[in-house]
Amino acid sequence: MNQAMQKDVQNTAKGRADEHMVELATFYVGDALCGMNILKVQEINKLMQMTKVPQAPDYVLGILNLRGQIVTIIDLGKKLGLGETDAQGDPRNIIVNSQGGYVGLLVRKIGDVVEADMTKKERPPANMRGIQGEFFTGVYKTQSALIGILDIDKVLSIED
């Protein structure tokens, strides 16, 4: 019992430290290195065969069947105003759960998982390699690169 309590205390202590530490899944949209909280990611897939949806917004590539769920695939590059993602490279679908439904984000390339201290997050610039600043909650500097932390819910919100 005593041990268990100790463990609990440790856990909470660790949890407190972790509040600032977030693992970021990083990926490339165009030339920009972006990241999002890895807990938001359901899974990452290769580009599968999709069903085109005529009359859909141009950034919607199509829909696909993910184990019985209909998932809308969005070309993140196009959605953020960077133009179409090249299907020839190594594009991946990042499946996220956003506002009650699964959405797939097509990105040019997947990067590493980066552990980031959110206290060191900085305010986003007005524009980051062609992407408007409003889509970022902030930027995080690592030794080698600058990661724009995407506000996925904002990116996926539907403008009127």
Partner: peptide, 23 residues
């Protein structure tokens, strides 16, 4: 149901998964 990004497409009542797994 279709995802919310496709709600504006009025021509569809939804989607279904066919025997071959495609939609």
């Amino acid at each position: 149901p279709l995802g919310r990004h496709l709600q504006q497409c009025k021509g569809y009542a939804g989607a279904t998964i066919m025997g071959d797994g495609r939609i």
